[in-house]
Simulated scan of single mutants.
Amino acid sequence: MNSLEDPLLWWNGSYERLTRVRIHPLDRGFQFGDGVFETIRVQKGKPIFLQDHLERLTLSLKALGFALRHEYFPWVNTRGERVETKSVEEIINHLIEVNSLSGCICRVKVLVSRGVVEGLSLPEPTKPTVFIMAFQYRPPEPDIYDHGWDIITVKDIFTPYLARYKVTSYLGYLVAKNCAVKKGSAEALLVDRSGNISEGASSSILVCKDGRWVEPLTEWKLPGVTIRQVARILSTMGHEVTSQPVGVSDLYECETIWLMNSMVGIMPVRTINHRRVPDLKKDIAASIRKRMFG
């Protein structure tokens, strides 16, 4: 069995083949979806925005009551005070080399569960389960970026408190995504309890109306790593990004809608609820993707 069929991964402090990894049936990640994760794009051997991803992961761990101990989380320094990327970069580079992924665009997932510990609250884990995995990623074809995605909005599918963190309790987002797929769309935008757009099932959203770029304002969403970088690049191009509530009806008045995440980069939207979006701004989107990914 070769590395493509049985890849090497980093598991609880050591390297192990996927087929040899065993998850305890009482692991809280399996029992309750009690964990957090990050997905990171690696291009030309470089993990894109690794510091930002690890900082967001660490904030999620803190919020959910994980003690930040270096022996479990190699990206946290020995005092548990700050995030350091070097050790994780070394792990990722080793996984890419051993799994024959050099020269490929890769998807790296860092996943943490609370492990095996009793209690129906959020007890401090005695030994969390930690994975780092690397797989080949095939981004959308150029014509998909050129044509853009068809997307829909969905109501009543979001988790208010947990929306702020990238948790493994992901079923609500998968249900929303499935609603989109069943209707022949690529993505679903979630509508919060105030009737405003929060985020996509697997993406952040940025809109342009009357020449102004706006990030939908809501407290019920994940702070996006990629959207922060896109906003920074837009500012260097003379475009300020502001935040304000965006309702479903507001989307129909936007000239441009972009979705973004760490793997896809920026994906223009072609239609929203079967209504045509006037301007994909695909050339600007392509330029920003190139600046982010090289």
Rank of each mutant, 00 (worst) to 15 (best):
V154F: 11
I233H: 05
I284D: 13
D283T: 14
C106W: 08
T242F: 12
E89Q: 13
R79K: 14
S243R: 15
L8I: 08
H70S: 14
F293I: 07
H24Y: 03
A67F: 04
W11M: 01
T126I: 03
G80H: 10
R17W: 01
L61H: 02
I23D: 00
K221W: 04
W213T: 04
A63G: 02
K282W: 11
G65S: 08
R20K: 08
R275I: 13
N93D: 15
L64G: 01
N261T: 03
S169P: 00
I92Q: 10
L4C: 01
L120Y: 11
L61W: 06
M237P: 00
V167F: 09
E81W: 03
G247Q: 03
N178P: 00
E124A: 06
G184M: 13
E187T: 07
R22H: 09
S87H: 11
L190I: 07
G45Y: 01
V264P: 00
K46V: 08
I132K: 06
A186L: 12
V117F: 02
I152Y: 10
L234W: 09
T19R: 04
Y145M: 08
T129A: 10
R69T: 03
S169T: 09
H70N: 15
N2S: 15
V76T: 07
R291M: 15
I132H: 09
E141P: 00
V117S: 07
